[in-house]
Write a protein that binds this DNA or RNA. Structure first.
Lengths: 230, 230
DNA sequence: ATGAATCATTGTTATAAAACAATTTATTTT
DNA sequence: AAAATAAATTGTTTTATAACAATGATTCAT
């Protein structure tokens, strides 16, 4: 299992959440004293669909995938990078996780007792407001996702994914994706074989460049057209 | 366009939101004075995907559908009944609606300036906490939805929908659905023809009874098995 | 270092579900 | 009440995409 340690100085942490600035010094110390920093290797589960929600999860280092497990196939809903809470809606809306989170690379998670976060949220409106904004954004993200995978077919979905990574996630035409082909397929809701096929189609057509896990968007306008038309 | 009137006594309203109990009397009066009650007929749009979020929407009477519009087909995400806020995540997470809401029957919506609700949320932690719970529940609902429509096929999806209506929404074996066949199809993410086909299949097999828009779940265990197996 | 295991790739086949078509039944509208 | 429009139904065809299969390339563990 993963190595863990106690938090020592949240205030000085370069990866700390902006929401902490809305709390009193003593509240931050309270979080610090009730925070466990846990290290996860690529592939390890951080929380598991169906289990009880006991901690707030804050991603301090690395990146993770949030996915829902079906009978046979998974669907990756969101990739998350450093300095973000993961799945806050589970703290306020339900007793059990309805998704699994696992590490895409070696990652560090701050685990804080959920009861403490709820208590702080119920007494610090500025703090809760920040958390609520995060939850709302994540809800909006899933709404977009549900449209993409429902209304578009293969090529459009994959184009959507590539554009999202380049324009919103990495904000760069060239990016090194932490996902395997199977994971990229699970992100775009298709079989791994078809993900590979369409990727190589785009490569052959000079729309993207592929070098292992490094992708380059060569013709974003064409990709955008494909994404629009579905 | 829809008829509208001013709110006159939110405090005495039998359909009022529980969250109002977390506000001071003066704040409730403030809402009341800034609240427009608008009547919508079946089919009328209450808010439209792509437009700016200017009001909080509270469903005081009737029922509505929340759906996302694609190029050719729509997907209904959620059906909402009286005494609930609609799409709160849009107040805190984004400037534009990423879904459309329209009335399933003649309905009454309280429209409150979004800036007022945000102001109250930023100063009343108990109130915001209630709103946050609602947003979180709706996020969890969409998570479940995205799994259903992704992992299951026709029969499983429709079984899911029927079970949800009978067990969670109407809490009754017999219920009169406000949805047309096309809308039921859009709720279960399939073509209208296939929705009809599968419904009649279930009827022929004695799993459900259909009388126009009135459905009766005759063999919930079998339906549940179908929903589980996909 | 070497075998095991997973990943990536390409071609082929099978199938679930949409699209199309045509008819019947309800609902509006004038 | 009649005409017009939309909804529901059933059968047939087409198609997008998963599933299967077979091979080569990487990565991983011992």
């Amino acid at each position: 299992m993963a190595k863990f340690s106690k938090a020592n100085d949240c205030h000085a942490c370069p990866y700390k959440s902006y929401s902490l600035s809305k709390l009193d010094k003593s509240d931050v110390e309270n979080i610090q004293n009730n925070c466990l920093i846990v290290n996860f290797k690529r592939g390890e589960n951080i929380c598991k669909q169906g289990t009880e929600v006991t901690h707030a999860l804050y991603l301090a280092k690395g990146s993770v995938k949030i996915y829902v497990e079906g009978n046979s196939k998974n669907l990756i809903l969101e990739i998350i990078n450093v300095s973000k809470y993961i799945g806050l809606q589970s703290l306020f809306g339900s007793k059990y996780y309805n998704y699994t989170v696992s590490a895409l690379e070696d990652s560090q998670i701050c685990m804080i007792n959920s009861s403490l976060i709820i208590e702080l949220a119920q007494t610090n409106v500025g703090y809760l407001y920040e958390l609520t904004k995060t939850i709302s954004e994540s809800t909006n993200f899933v709404y977009k996702k549900i449209v993409d995978i429902n209304q578009k077919q293969l090529r459009g979905r994959l184009a959507d994914a590539l554009l999202y990574f380049s324009e919103e996630f990495f904000k760069n035409n060239t990016f090194e994706l932490k996902l395997s082909r199977r994971e990229l397929a699970e992100y775009s809701s298709m079989s791994m074989e078809n993900a590979v096929r369409v990727l190589n189609e785009y490569k052959k057509d000079g729309i993207i460049g592929i070098e292992g896990k490094t992708f380059t968007i060569l013709q974003p306008e064409i990709l955008r057209k494909i994404a629009e038309l579905g």
